[in-house]
Design a binder for these strands. Structure first.
Lengths: 117, 117
DNA sequence: GTAATGCTTAGCCTTATGGCTAAGCATCAG
DNA sequence: CTGATGCTTAGCCATAAGGCTAAGCATTAC
């Protein structure tokens, strides 16, 4: 039930979740549509208990949602969640582009100043 | 000297590097321009040796570059490196949008078929 | 009702991560 | 040349991550 904490903790969990090729593969597979735990695990030479840890990691950071029906647990991608990631990355780009702009403005002003003198 | 491995390992390292608030703070600060290790560490109640581990983590995954001049090590952001991340994220989006398109096409065709019959 | 299926729980093991202190080493300032 | 500065190295420690096996527990198929 642990609901979303602050943004920083959420980013921690999402970036950590994506820092593993198995979990990125799951994400990529789920992009094509929902799948059961068994379907997701079968192409991955790894035991099911180990695989379940990856599923929990992805679910607890919100990147996927899962639901159990009968004995089958189905996983679906939660696309909205990716906005937090792209949002952070875009923010970084904004910061450095702003700073680049300032530098260019400065250089231009210096240049003009020198030209004028 | 360990040069870049395969894309998957590079993504592992970069996502892992970003899964830590201290390192994200460093990235954000460097967006505004280069800084020395000391400048970066001073606002962060953490020992210098501990902080250096974060610097190394960021450098070894390529997100920053550093250079030592005299006794000062200066760090700069390596913006290009972010393309690998945004590239992967965009690829995921492409996958799921493609699949959504296919679904819409299917639904439309079903609808047309039923209308025609 | 029995057996197979699909996941789950429990618990163990090894390695990686991220913090620390203490001590070292190369510059730079005076 | 001596001391302060700025980073570095070495090494310790606690916790978390990610793998495994063995065993359990509902559901579904026969």
């Amino acid at each position: 039930m642990a609901k979303h904490q602050n943004l920083s903790d959420e980013l921690d969990a999402m970036f950590a979740a994506l820092a593993d090729p198995t979990r990125r593969r799951v994400i990529a597979r789920l992009g094509a549509g929902p799948a059961s735990v068994g379907e997701l695990a079968s192409p991955l030479s790894i035991s099911l208990p180990s695989f379940m840890k990856h599923v929990h990691s992805l679910e607890s950071c919100g990147l996927i949602r899962t639901e159990k029906s009968g004995r089958v647990r189905t996983c679906v991608l939660n696309q909205n969640r990716f906005r937090l990631l792209t949002g952070w990355l875009e923010e970084q780009r904004r910061i450095w582009e702003e700073s680049t702009d300032r530098l260019e403005k400065f250089v231009t002003e210096e240049f003009v100043t020198k030209e004028e003198s």
